[in-house]
Amino acid sequence: MIRNASRLAATSVALFMLASPVFAQQAPQPTAGQLAAANEVAVSSGLTGAFDAMTDPLLNQLQQMNVTRPEIRQDLDQVVALIRPEVDQKKKEMVDATAKTLAARLSEAELKEIAAFYKSAAGQKWVQLQPGILDAIVRDMAIWTQRTSEFIMARAREEMGKRGHQLN
């Protein structure tokens, strides 16, 4: 659940960056080389895994309808097989949009350097471990946020009490 939430958050951030009208007005057009390198970074870094994490469960959920209505199983399987390429095209659109976002912010040389990292053993290990690391960070951040909030309120109450004020 946390993994999906962190992937959803990453996807939401990416969508926000793409939708920014200020960014759209100021961004120079990326070169074909930048876009190619950016696409390689988007895929090899695992950024695009979030798109699978969004669409695959939707298709699986659609196929689960056959549990409650077994008489539609064959037709439902055919429909899922029929629309899967269309869903893959939708994911490709998002991969392209992600590549454009990366290309607008990084030079071709920087993108190639980043892509080289993701091709390395350390980069591949990072991509493999990153979802679990993000899950742990999100979990730890929730705990930290709660504790920090409690600390701030306790300290504020203490200091305000010294000044003759009571905070509820």
Rank of each mutant, 00 (worst) to 15 (best):
I114H: 02
E113L: 07
A38E: 09
A97L: 12
E40G: 03
F51I: 09
Q26R: 14
T55L: 08
E93I: 08
A19R: 11
E86R: 14
F16H: 07
Q89C: 00
Q34D: 05
R105I: 04
I114P: 01
L58T: 02
Q63G: 15
A103E: 04
A9N: 04
G49Y: 07
Q124W: 07
L134C: 01
L111V: 08
T148D: 06
I137W: 07
A5C: 03
A27D: 05
Q166P: 00
K125N: 10
P30D: 11
P57C: 11
I137Y: 05
N66F: 01
V95L: 05
I72A: 03
A156F: 08
Q124D: 02
A14Y: 04
L167I: 11
P21V: 13
A154E: 10
T48L: 06
L47S: 04
M153A: 04
V87S: 05
T148Y: 10
K91S: 04
A121S: 14
N168F: 10
N168M: 08
Q89P: 00
E110T: 04
P30H: 12
A116G: 13
R7N: 12
D135K: 03
Q63R: 14
S20V: 03
L15R: 14
R7V: 01
L35Q: 05
M1N: 06
I137A: 07
I152C: 01
R84V: 01
S12N: 13
A38N: 06
Q78H: 11
V87T: 06
G123W: 12
P57G: 08
L58I: 13
F23I: 06
G33C: 09
M65W: 10
A97R: 10
I72T: 09
Q124H: 03
R69A: 12
A36C: 02
